[in-house]
């Protein structure tokens, strides 16, 4: 399950390692023509499988219907809620996920493998199942929901808090795994040297470890955000209202049919893609992989 990110991430990690051996691919002989042809055939199928539905979707609505959808306050507020919810879910995931990632990368403790597996668990829980499970704990009579309402007046069912909790539940494994890979790529010898140069343990964490793991953490943030903004199943059960964009689109589809849902779907797609590109850019600029020289 730690395999989600693995290929790209493992390669990143090896690039970070000082004096890493050249990647094996560089030494491999070029594949034979027949192998290339077959590989490209399947690769083409894959690309078509991803792009065809999305392009068809984008090409369908007229400009007028898009403009109408963008002006629809319900759709606009659903998009806004999705944005805010996903951002808060990513922040929450970073807050609770980064310390665990650090522990998993830097310490050995009994049950470590189990802890890592628990952190990955949401990946294999069907999202509606996750939503029902969350409802039982965060609902009005739940283990967390009841005291939260009594003590802080905080309600999860049918609220922004519920949206955030549902999004964070399904997205937090991406944060933990990406950040863990980030921390694992930090050479512990650098931390040792920093100590002998006069830094205390907290200063080493802030000035050496975190900056060097920043690429992994930022990648985790972007993935978590992307996963959160696309979540439907868990959100729809814990917080049908206030409606996030996917829930709104689903409702439009059920009540008015495909044509009305399409315009809103294109808008959500555009927003998600724009943010994805923005985050990638941000990660490269603000937290470039150490070892890739400027």
């Amino acid at each position: 399950m730690a395999g989600i990110l693995s290929d790209a991430a493992v390669q990143e990690a090896s690039e970070v390692a000082p004096e890493a051996p050249p990647p094996v691919a560089g030494l491999a002989p070029p594949p034979a023509l027949g192998v290339l042809l077959v590989a490209w055939l399947f690769a083409g199928l894959l690309l078509a499988f991803i792009l065809l539905p999305l392009l068809q979707l984008v090409a369908t609505p007229s400009l007028a219907s898009l403009r109408r959808a963008a002006g629809d306050t319900d759709i606009a507020s659903a998009l806004g809620l999705s944005l805010i919810g996903a951002a808060l879910a990513a922040l929450l995931s970073a807050t609770i996920g980064v310390p665990l990632a650090y522990l998993l990368a830097r310490t050995r403790f009994p049950g470590r493998a189990t802890v890592a597996a628990i952190a990955d668990l949401p990946l294999c829980v069907p999202h509606t199942v996750a939503g029902i499970a969350l409802l039982m704990v965060f609902g009005r009579r739940g283990l967390v929901g009841r005291p939260a309402e009594a003590l802080f007046g905080l309600q999860f069912w049918g609220s922004l808090a519920g949206v955030v909790v549902a999004m964070a539940f399904v997205a937090v494994p991406y944060m933990v795994n990406a950040a863990r890979i980030g921390f694992e790529a930090v050479d512990p010898r650098l931390e040792k040297v920093a100590r002998t140069l006069g830094m205390g343990p907290w200063e080493v964490l802030l000035r050496i470890t975190l900056p060097l793991a920043a690429h992994g953490i930022a990648t985790g943030f972007a993935l978590t955000f992307a996963r959160a903004i696309s979540e439907f199943g868990a959100v729809v059960i814990l917080a049908y209202y206030p409606m996030t964009a996917p829930v709104r689109i689903y409702e439009l589809f059920l009540r008015f049919g495909l044509d009305d849902a399409v315009a809103a779907a294109v808008l959500l797609l555009a927003l998600s893609l724009a943010l994805f590109v923005l985050f990638r850019h941000f990660v490269q600029r603000v937290a470039p992989m150490p070892g890739i020289g400027r």
Binding site: P18, E19, K192, R195, T196, L197, L212, P290
Partner: peptide, 20 residues
């Protein structure tokens, strides 16, 4: 004393310069 108060200069394999 912790390492930061020992006044030792540590040089490791490949010199472990801070890459960032």
């Amino acid at each position: 004393e912790p390492p930061e108060r020992r006044r030792v200069g540590l040089l490791l394999q490949s010199f472990a310069l801070f890459p960032h």
